[in-house]
Design a protein around this nucleic acid. Structure first.
Lengths: 135, 135
DNA sequence: CTAAATGCAAAACCTTTGCCTCAAA
DNA sequence: TTTGAGGCAAAGGTTTTGCATTTAG
């Protein structure tokens, strides 16, 4: 079985509908970090009967199943991406572009800091906001 | 001149009103990380004519002046704290308690990561979510 | 006096929900 | 057939805004 978002949904016994398939496909094909409205617009292009309520319900379902992740970049909207290898985000404050990165040292450090404070690290959020260096 | 939030506002030539003084006082006296509604309720106790619109306008003003900082902990609300020495937050996912911490290594690492990606680090957000270790 | 701040209520956003209909298993 | 999903529109929660009035400087 190919390891697609769809197959992962089926593996979790998530009831599959034509609307969910469309939304799942849209999420898979998006390599930016779309908000619900963007997902909705892209889905409607493929099936103009999909309602935004269904998009909201579907992202909530997929998030709770651990198949997608919700991001917040400080504007009021939630953005989503497929869950996969863990990584962080660097947001270009001039263009809005989002770059992903992963740094092992950072991961270790976060866990250590939490432990020193008497906590088990369950989750974390990190975003860097930067301006492209001109030099 | 004592270094209070009020004096820092005056130093920036922010027009002072009785409502702003109250809200500023409330922010200074809060060592939790209140949202707008909490600030509003605490302010109303001191002056029952203050409206929540004024609280919204004031926190926006103070944030833009760099005198307070807006935090987001993943629920829909913005929380605020006085700007001061930079620090990060660890949120206890069981109690909601927020602990502050500072780690030099972390700061260095963030700046370095941004630079390696061709960016000057302008801002960043980091929250750790943890569960108190029982052992 | 003049420009800016406040209060109030309405509106603007984003998100959730009730209810009835429709479809998946 | 039964249980859950979708569509629609209404409602919720947070934040912003228009406008008339008041206040700081």
């Amino acid at each position: 079985m190919s390891d697609t978002l769809l197959s992962r949904c089926l593996a979790k016994n998530i009831r599959m509908t034509s609307q969910r398939q469309i939304i799942i496909q849209v999420i898979e094909e998006s390599d930016d970090h779309p908000d619900v409205d963007q997902l909705y617009l892209r889905s409607v292009e493929l099936d103009n009967t999909i309602s935004i309520a269904t998009v909201y319900r579907t992202v909530k379902l997929l998030e709770e199943a651990g198949l997608i992740e919700r991001l917040e970049f400080g504007d009021g909207r939630s953005r989503y991406e497929e869950a996969g290898e863990h990584h962080e985000h660097l947001v270009d404050i001039e263009t809005g572009e989002v770059h992903e990165f992963y740094n092992e040292e950072l991961e270790t450090l976060k866990t250590e800091i939490a432990r020193e404070m008497g906590y088990d690290l369950i989750d974390h959020r990190l975003e860097l906001y930067g301006k492209k260096r001109k030099s």
